[in-house]
Design a protein around this nucleic acid. Structure first.
Lengths: 338, 338
DNA sequence: ATTGGCACTCAGGGCCGTCGAGTGCCACGG
DNA sequence: CCGTGGCACTCGACGGCCCTGAGTGCCAAT
């Protein structure tokens, strides 16, 4: 009874099931894969795998289906990422190259990934928290309103309107200059001290205004809830050979809850290859028990600035999906840096 | 043979079918509605309505189902908008009141409408083309790049980066001042002349820069393709008593094509009540032959600035949907104006 | 440990037969 | 001329029935 062979059987089951979407039995298994043993032997191995919780039968006298645990073992130990073909790579690069601004880059990326994986693609906008500041702009609007525009090195622009008690003073130009000197190129974590020092340079009377501006900048950068997510390929959920027992409704519902998605994306720990996989019930969300998510970070050198991922049925082609997600993330990172 | 009664029969058929989702026959019809005639009579009327193309039978010996033409007649002549209950109104108002910025307003509106109609809600962002400019901001990024930020009176902010041949000159502050003087409060259509006059005020050497900036502002405002659309409630497409023969896939696909959606929304002519309805095949789009759209404009006094709508199966409760769309549009307009 | 053999299980598909809602048509009466 | 009751006919939906075939577990043999 070789442990080796049992794993081989599991791999065969997963691959077969992913391809055919039908429970796979011992006979067809030995026919389609070169296992070198008889169906009876495979049956024994299957019994073992079932005891161990890697596979299950939908009903007596049916073939076996991988469980979440089975898929997990498969992606952890058995699957080898298949690199994309070089025409594919070129297509990706060309497609992303044409983007005109950040919105366009993100939009193209998410469509591209959905197209490649034939699943639902999800891209998180570059996080403000981890981005460095490029520029701050203060624009007086009327007498008592001040527009604060925040521009990050990833090209993202965020704006907030401040309602002031007192009329906007003419300290604004100086404040803009000093603010920019203090924040340029810094990240949120590195902001507090230089900003505090800066306040001291202003006369007592102007301090309230200065404080409010600083406050709104910090709040905006810290505000995790403001994270935006873009999605594409939801139609793929309804593909002909649809998976998802019953309806896709709970999945669509989960996808509309951006909060849920964000949590999922950010919580996912990455394995050594830099790609995280969450399988079925590992997603702690009722609507997603039949879904798997493959995600990775992108942007920034070293530390990722946001995440990108693909969501599909647990029965997905993990190797291909992982390859696609990785590829798009890599090109995306390159584009943003350039 | 009263024409009156035939219409009454059609109304009964539509109402019954919308409620039960089942082809309606003559007997059940007279049982459920007070038509005051016998089933046989209704059958004659039905035969007429079928000849006229307002209803159809899925198969011989089944009840009748309204056709697109039937629904059309229904919404045009037979349906009376039912006003929302006042608790509903208060809830809408309270919900929208809490919004903090434009994104939030739009987001809340679309979710709200999806919730009210139990369908897919769609909101077009306030159009740049029809908005008035509030402010322009020019921010030099490094030596040869210039960020142009455009802020409209609807609170929308758009940005573009210009790559320049020559280093950014110190004419930028002056350009900013003059630009703002020239454009403030104006709409796209009213821009050309003041901008042209303004160019003359600059020395020959700076003209190329000035022209490029003007160009990018005009382009951005004119660019219809940049229109953004926000959507919510796609999960409602997969509701239990699902309509849509076969799958919802084509509908999801159509919804992902923002271009298609935009065209639909803007093309729709409004009837006297200010609400436009497109039924089934009236949407010239293969994926939407089983869908109807109810839309109206919002924002701006007099002339609408963008559109909001709800999409569902042709078999929808038109009266209720129209009421909801109208209500949300009205509150949305009020919020944006305040 | 592996294998062939064997008895057993069970979902799915094809094949009626019944049921009932629904239709069209026609002849009759106000 | 319109509305009505009656009647013969249609046809999809539903349920029961049987058969088939893929699949299983177990056991004795190698």
């Amino acid at each position: 009874m070789s442990d080796e062979r049992r794993l081989e059987v599991l791999r065969a089951i997963v691959e077969d099931y992913v391809q055919t979407r039908e429970p796979v039995g011992s006979r067809t298994l030995v026919e389609r894969h070169q296992l070198g043993v008889s169906p009876a032997t495979v049956r024994n191995d299957m019994a073992y795998l079932e005891d161990a919780g890697f596979i299950a039968q939908p009903h007596t006298s049916a073939g076996r289906v991988p469980t979440d645990k089975g898929y997990r073992l498969f992606v952890d130990r058995l699957s080898t990422v298949k690199p994309l073909s070089s025409p594919e790579r070129r297509a990706i690069e060309a497609f992303l190259q044409d983007a005109v601004d950040l919105d366009d880059v993100v939009d193209r990326s998410v469509r591209l990934l959905a197209q490649l994986t034939q699943q639902v693609a999800v891209v998180q906008y570059p996080s403000l928290r981890r981005s460095a500041l490029r520029h701050l702009e203060l624009v007086p609007l009327g007498d008592t309103r001040l527009l604060v525009v925040i521009i990050t090195d990833t090209g993202r622009v965020e704006q907030r309107v401040l309602e002031l008690e007192a009329p906007v003073t003419d300290v604004v130009p100086e404040l803009r200059a000093r603010l920019n000197a203090a924040v340029a190129g810094r990240r949120l974590a590195e902001l507090t001290e230089p900003l505090d020092r800066m306040v001291a340079a202003f006369p007592e009377a102007d301090r309230p205004l200065v404080h409010r501006v600083i406050r709104v900048v910090e709040d905006t950068l810290a505000e995790a809830t403001e994270e935006r997510i873009v999605m594409a390929g939801t139609a793929n959920l309804a593909r002909s050979g649809t998976d998802f027992t019953g309806t896709i409704r709970p999945v669509l519902e989960a996808l509309e809850e951006q909060v849920v998605l964000l949590r999922l994306l950010t919580e996912m720990a990455e394995d050594s290859a830099g790609v995280a996989v969450r399988i079925g019930s590992e997603n702690r969300h009722a609507g997603l028990v039949e879904a798997s998510i493959v995600a990775t970070g992108y942007g920034g050198d070293g530390e990722a600035v946001a995440r990108i991922g693909s969501l599909g049925p647990t029965r997905m082609d993990y190797a291909a999906t992982i390859a696609s997600v990785r590829a798009v993330a890599r090109y995306l990172t390159r584009i943003l840096a350039g």
